[in-house]
Design a protein around this nucleic acid. Structure first.
Lengths: 352, 352
DNA sequence: CCCCACACGGTAAACGTTTACAGAAGCAGG
DNA sequence: CCTGCTTCTGTAAACGTTTACCGTGTGGGG
């Protein structure tokens, strides 16, 4: 941990000026024997370029920040997993901000762009407040927002389309002959809750089915909420034949309750989740789920940002990622074990 | 994105020297009216301190790196989720390196410490090679290794204890009256594979059970491997009454095959997983699993690193985190739906 | 043989901070 | 009114790079 060698150390040892050292290290045209002397000295000293000094001079940090509420959330995680390699390939490091559902903290991240410790930011705001919009307009570095941002906001924007996602699911259920499809939604004052609710209404209309508010139940986005909501629903409408759940955890809760009530899935009640997380493939029966393309959104955001870092002068762009329905046993189901399907690393690489 | 104001801009506007500005901004004793002038100017200009310049001068970046093979891996993710808030509370940013199981890449991360873009590193190596040890000895910043490192390596070290973990599981199964316990292990040339194999042998001996190599099957750490392995095992030893699986994915594979074969879990065959991931609580029946304390290891590592960053002169320390058995339906089981249990956020916070 | 062009390398400034040092100003005491 | 002390502030150097600019030395052409 001793004080590392600098360009000056090398210059002394090689008997040249620091300018020459810098030129050699940057591959600028230099006489051959100078090159050799410098390289030799650098080698012997184990020189490594100081990134901080370099950043100060060049005002490029080669770092990009990614800010979201919680890395533990599978949707954000899926984004992260795509963003990381894209940035890495382009020579950027990734700084992670978990803001923990705290709006003030999100604003803080935006503010901290002024510290210039990153070249750009990808952020997934929980909610877009006026404060967000003001900070986005004044941001000191390029920002890409995943989620919806009003037209005219000077940032690149990547969106999912959960309305259409719900629509896909309802079309699928309708095609399977289901006519009494319940909705187990999250809070309607959240962005996803609102969009999913709207998608449900829309889809019913498109299919010519009546909207029956007894078929809708609201809770939070967790498994226990799903259980509560579905219990209530079954109680109220025992003839229900399908459930559209606003995320996979809610759907797992639904499976718990249906099993306890002796309803077969999918024969008696078909169940669809949303987000297509790992849990969907792991559950029994495996869960049909609407993928909102988190991975694709992450990748798109990273690419937009890289583009802008290369050439900041393009107009703000909008990318919308289409949803996709992953059909599994909970709707389609022969009850066979899942095929050699989306298996994912889960080994503990650590341990002793 | 205009060129932001610097300390010099403020100095001009306030009619003082840059030294005074710096002093005010750092809260050093200063005459009151100077303070007001500087604060006013800083306010008006929307000044934000440049982190890069600051780092250069102070040789502190207030960044820490975390390097592991893959963020998607639940064990690493659990670590990350603990590390992040600890660092954040201490005023450090988190730089994430996903090395993708590439040893050269891990070495690269160690090497890049010389660039001094972080103050320290927490790393989870897949395997500890000689190259690792050399780089660790020469590291230009404090490193904490999660995993096992030979005695004498000059780094802080946090370990799990999967041998004891296997032991806990086998004790539990034995107490339930199971006597023909199979092992579905990962590759024995990996650190976790080896440790788990050793734990199995040890535990059998301690329980006075014979070691029967027909009861052991090896595959990789994925669900499909688990299915293959368990199919072979059932074929060879139809009288098997319990399965110790080297991770949760393997265990899910085991459940698939047992279900298909008409064996009831846990009545006919009890199943234990390892790592206690989200999947364990999500599966049906829910999975008894050995937690190796990933979260605790992450937290411990972060705390060790912070300690060392405060005062680099303490001797290298070793922390071993004990395993814990999470008993669920796959061994203990009434087949009731899981209680209002470890439900975790899974809502999509984005989308629209 | 001289001059010019050119390639190369060195000096110094700059990036935006922090901080050692010294000078200025204010004040109390003699 | 001077001395000496304290308190504050300004000047300048430093962190480790990159790079504009200029001087030197070489080789070739006239």
């Amino acid at each position: 941990m001793a004080q590392g060698p600098t360009i000056t150390t090398i210059a002394k040892r090689a008997g040249v000026s620091i300018a020459s050292v810098s030129r050699v290290l940057n591959g600028l045209p230099t006489r051959q024997d100078t090159v050799s002397k410098v390289m030799a000295a650098a080698e012997e000293l184990g020189y490594v370029r100081n990134a901080v000094a370099r950043s100060l001079k060049s005002s490029r940090t080669h770092q990009v920040a990614f800010a979201m509420a919680d890395v533990g959330n599978p949707a954000y995680l899926a984004m992260l997993r795509e963003i990381q390699p894209v940035l890495k390939a382009a020579g950027y490091r990734l700084v992670l901000h978990s803001t923990g559902a705290d709006v003030a903290d999100e604003i803080g991240v935006l503010h901290s762009l002024g510290e210039r410790y990153v070249d750009g930011l990808i952020m997934v705001p929980l909610r877009v407040t006026d404060a967000h919009l003001r900070m986005l307009a004044a941001a000191r570095a390029p920002v890409v927002v995943i989620g919806s941002v009003p037209e005219g906001t000077p940032v690149d924007n990547v969106r999912a389309d959960s309305r259409t996602g719900v629509r896909l699911a309802l079309d699928h259920l309708h095609a399977l002959g289901r006519r009494r499809v319940g909705l187990v939604n999250g809070p309607p004052d959240t962005v996803p809750g609102a969009a999913r609710g709207a998608g449900y209404v829309e889809a019913l209309a498109a299919l010519g089915l009546p909207y029956d508010k007894e078929l809708v139940e609201i809770g939070d986005f967790y498994r226990a909420d799903g259980r509560r909501a579905v219990a209530a629903l079954l109680d109220r409408r025992p003839d229900i034949d399908a459930l559209m759940c606003a995320n996979d955890l809610i759907a797992l809760g639904a499976l718990d309750v249906l099993r306890a009530a002796g309803r077969r899935v999918p024969q008696d009640v078909a169940v669809v989740g949303m987000d297509d997380t790992d849990l969907a493939a792991a559950s029994w029966p495996s869960l049909t789920s609407v993928s909102l393309g988190s991975a694709e959104r992450g990748r798109a955001a990273a690419e937009l940002l890289l583009d802008r870092l290369e050439d900041g002068d393009v107009a703000p762009r909008l990318v919308t990622v289409p949803p996709r329905l992953e059909v599994r046993a909970s709707t389609a189901g022969e009850q066979a074990p899942p095929a050699g399907d989306a298996d994912r690393p889960g080994a503990d690489g650590a341990g002793a």
